[in-house]
Computed example of a mutant assay.
Amino acid sequence: MTISANAQEGTWSVSVETREAQEGGFQSTIHVKHVSPEGDFERTFHQSQVFAVEREAVLEGLREGMTWIALKTTRTIGV
């Protein structure tokens, strides 16, 4: 079974889909998107950690995406 989830904060959004890892367990693909008049921004990355429970993979994926947004909006990182 594949679980997906999304979260929004203002003009930013995070969506996550899980997949089975080759070595067993689950990993997530994380999509971060920002919509603005200056142009849309989108970033997709894969979770490196493997989780035994699919629910944990999707929750950690949302957490990673929201952390990425916080770092981007505070200009801690620039991509």
Rank of each mutant, 00 (worst) to 15 (best):
H34F: 12
K33V: 15
T74Q: 11
D40G: 13
D40E: 13
M1C: 06
N6Y: 06
D40S: 08
S15E: 12
A21R: 09
I3Q: 04
R75F: 05
A70C: 07
D40W: 01
V79S: 10
T18L: 02
F26L: 07
H31D: 14
V32K: 00
T44A: 07
E23C: 12
P37S: 07
H31M: 12
A70V: 01
W68R: 12
R19I: 10
G24M: 04
R43Y: 12
R55Q: 14
R43N: 10
W12Q: 06
V79M: 10
Q27V: 11
H46F: 13
R19F: 15
F26N: 03
S48A: 15
T73A: 06
F51T: 04
E60G: 01
T2V: 12
T18N: 02
A57G: 06
V14S: 05
I69A: 00
N6V: 03
P37T: 04
K72M: 05
L62I: 05
R19Q: 14
S13C: 02
L59H: 07
G10H: 01
T29F: 06
Q22H: 11
T11H: 13
S13E: 09
F41M: 09
A5F: 02
T29W: 04
S4H: 15
T67H: 09
V35K: 15
T18H: 01
T29Y: 01
T11G: 10
S13F: 00
V14N: 04
L59I: 02
S36H: 10
Q27Y: 02
H34V: 04
D40L: 05
R19N: 11
S13L: 01
V32M: 01
E42C: 10
E56Q: 14
V14R: 00
M1R: 08
S15N: 06
I69C: 00
G24N: 11
E20R: 15
D40P: 13
I30H: 00
A7V: 08
M1Y: 09
A5Q: 10
A52L: 13
S48L: 14
H31P: 04
V35F: 09
L59W: 06
L62Y: 03
R75V: 10
R63M: 05
M1N: 10
G39D: 01
F51G: 03
V50E: 01
E38F: 07
K72S: 11
F26T: 05
S48Y: 08
T74R: 11
A52F: 13
Q47F: 05
L59C: 06
S36N: 09
E17N: 08
G24K: 14
Q27S: 10
G10Q: 01
A70L: 04
R55M: 09
F51N: 07
Q47S: 08
V16E: 03
Q49C: 04
E60A: 08
E17Y: 02
A21W: 04
Q8L: 09
E38W: 05
S28P: 00
I3R: 06
A70Y: 00
E23P: 01
A52H: 12
G61K: 00
H31G: 06
F45N: 02
F41P: 09
L71I: 05
G78K: 13
H46K: 14
G25Q: 04
N6Q: 09
E42T: 14
G78M: 08
S28V: 02
G25P: 02
I3K: 07
M66N: 07
E60T: 04
W12H: 11
M66W: 00
W68F: 15
G78D: 11
S4R: 13
V35E: 15
K33R: 14
G24W: 07
T11Q: 15
A21S: 11
L62G: 03
